[in-house]
Amino acid sequence: MQAADTAPAVSRGGRPSREAAAQLGERILDAAMELMLEQGYGATSIEAVAARAGVSKRTFYHRFADKAALVQAVVARVVERARPPLAARASTPPQAPAPEGLEGLRRSLHDFGTHTLRAALSPQVLALYRLIIGESHRFPDLLRAVALSGGRAQAVRTLVDTLCRQLPQLPPAQAEFAAQQFLQMLVSLPQLRAMGIGDAMSEPDCELWVTQTVDLLLNGLGG
Rank of each mutant, 00 (worst) to 15 (best):
P85W: 00
P84V: 03
R107L: 03
L86H: 12
R81G: 08
G101T: 03
P99E: 06
L128N: 07
T92H: 14
P140D: 08
D111Q: 07
H115W: 02
T114E: 13
A127K: 10
A82P: 12
L142W: 00
R130P: 10
T116P: 02
G104Y: 12
L109F: 02
L105S: 09
P99G: 08
A82E: 11
Q124H: 15
H115P: 05
L142S: 13
H137V: 09
R138S: 03
G104N: 05
P85A: 05
I133K: 10
A88V: 13
R130L: 05
L143E: 06
L131M: 14
A119V: 13
S136P: 09
V125L: 01
L117I: 02
I132G: 10
P97F: 01
G134V: 08
P140S: 15
D141G: 06
E80T: 06
T114S: 13
G134S: 11
S136F: 02
A88R: 12
S122W: 01
E135P: 01
A127D: 15
R81N: 02
L117S: 09
S108M: 04
R130S: 07
Y129H: 09
T116E: 04
Y129T: 13
P97W: 07
S108A: 09
L117V: 03
L102G: 15
T92A: 15
T114V: 07
P97Q: 02
S108E: 13
F112G: 06
A87P: 11
D141W: 00
R130Y: 07
Y129W: 02
L128E: 10
G104C: 03
R138C: 08
V125I: 05
L102P: 09
P94G: 00
A82C: 14
A120V: 08
P97D: 04
L126P: 04
L102E: 12
L126T: 02
A87F: 03
L126G: 06
H110Q: 05
G113T: 09
G104T: 03
E135D: 09
L131D: 14
P94Q: 03
Q95M: 09
P93L: 00
A87H: 11
T114P: 10
P97Y: 03
L109G: 05
R106F: 03
S136E: 01
I133F: 07
F139R: 15
Q95V: 10
T92C: 14
E135Q: 08
L86N: 05
A127L: 00
R83T: 07
S136D: 06
A87Q: 11
L109D: 04
R138L: 13
L126K: 00
A120M: 00
A119P: 04
F139S: 14
A127H: 15
R89K: 13
P94A: 03
P99Y: 13
G134R: 08
T114R: 04
V125Q: 12
R89E: 12
R89G: 14
R81A: 02
L143H: 07
S136T: 09
R106H: 02
R118H: 04
P97H: 08
Y129P: 03
P93W: 01
S122F: 01
P99Q: 10
